[in-house]
């Protein structure tokens, strides 16, 4: 599905983001990439949809080398590879539903999208995906009225509505509190398994990675230092990835705090 062949990336300022990465990810896998900040997690993920440009090597997505795609083909690739961001990247002044429909833009003609003429099937799809992440009742509210966890769910619904084969999630829960983080990760894992999507997630909390991943990839200074299923992971693995003993800060904490309560539902 996705294959890195000797991929390196050097930023214009000379910083080496990735160093000779070789990696193969199969369809339907839920992969978590761990490493310290600056280890190249984001760079690796953003190479797959060419938000950054690898400087050497081959990157095969769906049987095709994507390192030299031009405008139109690049948009085709990105339509097939969805992305979730740390800061949600939704338009806060737009309604929840419109934000979700923005995921359809790659499938929609320019004129149609300007006029807002999304086919009824797209609207159905958007609503169904909002329902899957539990915020369909908020479809017509302004996105800014929703909590952080709900805003990240908007972006999950958006990415699902895009109907991609691959989901990239760049630190999806780094702006959320621990209980909400777990709920969002559970939602993400659930929907990606249901739809059989290949999912690659960047996380920097070790316990979280262990809880949700099928397979862990460890990066350190742009190099691949671990790659294997979670059954092969030992405490030493993380010492190797982090290059130092594990500290309290590397753990998010257990998912035993009370459920997130929606104030609006309580008041009703």
């Amino acid at each position: 599905m996705i294959e890195f062949k000797d991929v390196s990336l050097v930023y214009p300022n000379g910083f080496k983001g990735l160093k000779n990465i070789n990696l193969k990810i199969e369809k339907g896998e839920f992969v978590v990439i761990v490493g310290m900040s600056g280890a190249g997690k984001s760079t690796l993920i953003r190479s797959i949809n060419r938000m950054v440009q690898p400087t050497s090597g081959q990157l095969i997505v769906n049987g095709r080398d994507i390192t030299n795609l031009k405008d139109r083909q690049l948009r085709g690739l990105r339509t097939n590879v969805g992305m979730i961001f740390q800061s949600y990247n939704i338009v806060k002044r737009m309604s929840v539903l419109r934000n979700v429909l923005a995921g359809r833009l790659g499938h929609t003609g320019t004129l149609r999208s300007i006029l807002g003429w999304f086919p009824q099937s797209d609207l159905q799809l958007a609503m169904r995906n909002l329902e899957r992440v539990g915020i369909d009742s908020k479809a017509y509210q302004r996105a800014s009225n929703l909590s952080g966890g709900q805003q990240q769910r908007i972006s999950i619904a958006r990415v699902l509505t895009q109907e991609p084969a691959v989901i990239l999630a760049d630190e999806p829960v780094a702006s959320l509190d621990p209980p909400t983080s777990h709920k969002v990760m559970k939602d993400l894992k659930k929907v990606s398994k249901e739809d059989g999507l290949t999912t690659i997630v960047n996380l920097h909390f070790i316990d979280m990675a262990m809880e949700y991943a099928d397979r862990i990839i460890g990066l350190r200074d742009g190099e691949l230092v671990f790659d294997g299923p979670i059954s092969e992971v030992t405490p030493e693995t993380f010492v190797e990835i982090y290059g130092r003993p594990i500290k309290e800060d590397d753990l998010l904490g257990k998912d035993d705090e009370p459920e997130e309560v929606d104030l609006e539902d309580v008041v009703k």
């Binding site: 990105r78 339509t79 097939n80 990247n89 338009v91 923005a102 833009l105 972006s155």
Partner: peptide, 10 residues
């Protein structure tokens, strides 16, 4: 950031 998201979705 939302612009990046739309670019990333094609």
């Amino acid at each position: 950031e939302p612009l990046e998201a739309i670019r990333a979705s094609g």
